[in-house]
Amino acid sequence: MVIDVQVASFFTAAALIVLGLFAALFIDNLIKKVIGLAFIADGVNLFLVTLGYRPGGMVYIFLPGMSADIFTQTASYPLPFAMVLTSIVIGASTLAVMLGIIIILYKKHGTISASKILNE
């Protein structure tokens, strides 16, 4: 049985998001929590990329001499890719800030257990 790439990607994205939420909720180690949160962002990015995918499609560059009709029928959708690039950059900066704060908290508390640091 051949599974469609697009459908498989949608399921992977959903699985990543659910896993990330699970990690954010249940894992105590702050670094692992951050990895889980990164999973959520990755899942959404994967979903966006998959949205722009077109089975059998071609690269969305319009070259001289190309027929406009064929281009519109076969080119994949470029907007999601541009959006994913932006979103990855934002995700990376958020990740960096989170890890930076965790380093400071580790120096202060000597542990990275969420239940010890983040519970008042």
């Binding site: 959520i40 962002a41 959404v44 979903f47 958020t94 989170m98 704060i101 983040l118």
Partner: peptide, 20 residues
């Protein structure tokens, strides 16, 4: 710092949901 981290954790759940 603790509050900031909590806020950022919640942000990194809410913002991807907005992107979704």
């Amino acid at each position: 710092y603790e509050t900031a981290l909590k806020y950022l954790f919640l942000a990194s759940i809410a913002a991807p949901m907005l992107l979704l």
